[in-house]
Write a protein that binds this DNA or RNA. Structure first.
Lengths: 198, 198
DNA sequence: TGCCCAGTGGGCAACTTTGCCCTGTGGGCA
DNA sequence: TGCCCACAGGGCAAAGTTGCCCACTGGGCA
């Protein structure tokens, strides 16, 4: 299943990551508005033109991890065992991701906070979340089937509730200064939101 | 005088340096004969083909620093103030180089030792030294003028004596396990070899 | 002796990065 | 208001890197 992607692919991933990291670091240091693409490419040791080959804007570069995670999440849900229900698949996918990438670190919180403060980034993130929500609805529908009436509504509610739980858990985690592991808070939030389903 | 070489040039230099470093490290670890080009390119994170774009062989890659230093030395001699005599220019260039690059480190001694043990590398290094000697003769001639009879012989002797002094100083430095700074030993050796000129 | 095979060297096309250029945009400021 | 100027976006050709290929070499070994 694990296939080595070859040098060319690996280097592209490295470059993308380097640009993202540089953007994040500079944005944390002085705020995204006071960072030019010029600054980023200098920090990432690439040409300005190459930046454009990878990202359309510094916002893109900054949110790369975010959007990457969203794609991963959707993929993880879709790849859960077929016998799991939609809700089980969602919870399984979360658990899986937290296990695979380990506990999100301080940097992760920083990025989230930073994003939240910046209007244009916030807009982007809302759009991303909306997209994720749509994708999850689709994934759930594909899984639970749409035969019975109201299945669509149920999938929508489920996806929304799921994301709300994650969002709230993340907020709490940040507010608590990462005192408890995020995974624990998330499990708790998911339990809570799932209660009506019983 | 100092001109920033641009990203493209800088990256080429970085790659060349990375290949050289990787070669050196691996050669020190297990001997050059037990290092393949494959190993080197893996360590340097480049493709095998790129290796060939930079060096014709692993010996080339290993001796890169050596040959680089030779070019630097010749350049340094040529760029000494015009009013200096040939011998003054040689000494000035050495002092300058030791100052610019700082004291050569342990790695430098390692490379030298390693080179000395390996027949094909040794041959290469002898050829390099011969080339350096020729270049220095030329530089000295250009400086001191060739008007008077015997000027050519004098330049040849001077260059040879100079290199002998450096070579012996380096040997002593290694034998003493780098107890004294190389610069000090070199000054002493140069004083010694210069005595007949008084 | 003949065969195999790891390692090397380099041609070539596909792809990526760079450098240069020109256009467009949104403040500052005379 | 009009002019500048820093910055962003992206077309294009040149330069660099990769991946694939094949030819060659020098041991090992049946």
């Amino acid at each position: 299943m694990e296939t080595t992607p070859g040098l060319r692919e690996r280097k592209k991933a490295e470059t993308r990551q380097a640009i993202h990291k540089a953007t994040l670091r500079l944005a944390v240091e002085r705020g995204l508005d006071h960072v030019t693409v010029e600054d980023i490419v200098e920090a990432a040791n690439i040409s300005r033109r190459t930046f454009s080959n990878y990202f359309g804007s510094k916002e893109d570069a900054l949110l790369y991890g975010e959007e990457q995670r969203i794609r991963d999440m959707v993929r993880a849900v879709r790849e859960r065992p077929a016998e799991e229900s939609g809700w089980q698949a969602l919870r399984g996918a979360v658990r899986e991701m937290l296990r695979d990438v380990g506990e999100p670190d301080r940097e992760w919180a920083v990025r989230t906070t930073l994003t939240r403060r910046h209007p244009s980034l916030l807009a982007r993130q809302l759009a991303n979340h909306a997209a994720l929500e749509r994708e999850l609805v689709q994934a759930i529908s594909d899984r639970d089937g749409q035969a019975e009436p109201g299945a669509d509504l149920k999938a929508r509610i489920m996806a929304a509730a799921f994301l709300v739980a994650l969002r709230i858990a993340t907020h709490i985690w940040i507010e608590e200064q990462e005192a408890r592991p995020l995974s624990q808070i998330m499990e708790q939030a998911l339990d809570e939101v799932a209660r009506p389903f019983h």
